[in-house]
């Protein structure tokens, strides 16, 4: 068995109802791991781009890409090389902030992580942060001590560096 690792799979699909169900259904049916899946319109009219994060060895990855390619509405599938890929995730964190001290600490942490405060209430703060999943995990860790009320993450989306496109 070769090594298990996390793979970033990007796919161009026809933007139609049911496509997401076909793709996610495939993962369930074939017993593939799926950590996250994001989808949105692409630069081409009528086409959407998906980013799927999945774990498995090379053999599993090969099956995933081949099986994805069999879906009629899937146009292209690529396994992105993590070395030459930019990966970003958006996360919204609502944290407990009952007093001035905690409030200023949280704002400082958010600044360090280049996050933004997007909502304030007497007892809470909401932070928006974009970055790699690692970076977001790190900020969440720091904020734990204040009491996190809610976390919303989009799951990573990815693009290859340079002029290459798929």
């Amino acid at each position: 068995m070769s090594e298990q690792r996390s793979h970033i799979i990007t796919a161009v699909v026809q933007h139609r109802p049911g496509v997401l169900q076909r793709v996610s259904g495939l993962f369930t049916r074939r017993g593939f791991n799926i950590d996250s899946i994001t989808v949105g319109p692409s630069e081409k009219n009528g086409m959407a781009r998906m980013t799927i994060i999945s774990r498995g060895d090379e053999k599993v990855l090969e099956q995933i890409t081949k099986q994805l390619n069999k879906i009629i509405e899937v146009i292209k599938v690529r396994d992105l090389d993590p070395q030459s890929t930019v990966l970003r995730e958006l996360c919204l964190i609502k944290t407990h902030a009952p007093n001035e001290k905690s409030r200023s600490e949280i704002i400082q942490y958010a600044n360090i992580f280049r996050g933004r405060i997007i909502d304030v209430s007497p007892y809470s703060l909401t932070i928006e942060i974009t970055g790699t999943p690692d970076k977001i995990d790190a900020l969440i860790d720091l904020l734990q001590s204040f009491g996190i009320q809610k976390i919303v993450r989009t799951g990573p989306t990815a693009i290859s560096r340079g002029s290459k496109t798929i």
Partner: peptide
């Protein structure tokens, strides 16, 4: 004819 069958 089905590439997904290769090595499955």
């Amino acid at each position: 004819v089905d590439p997904a069958e290769i090595g499955k």
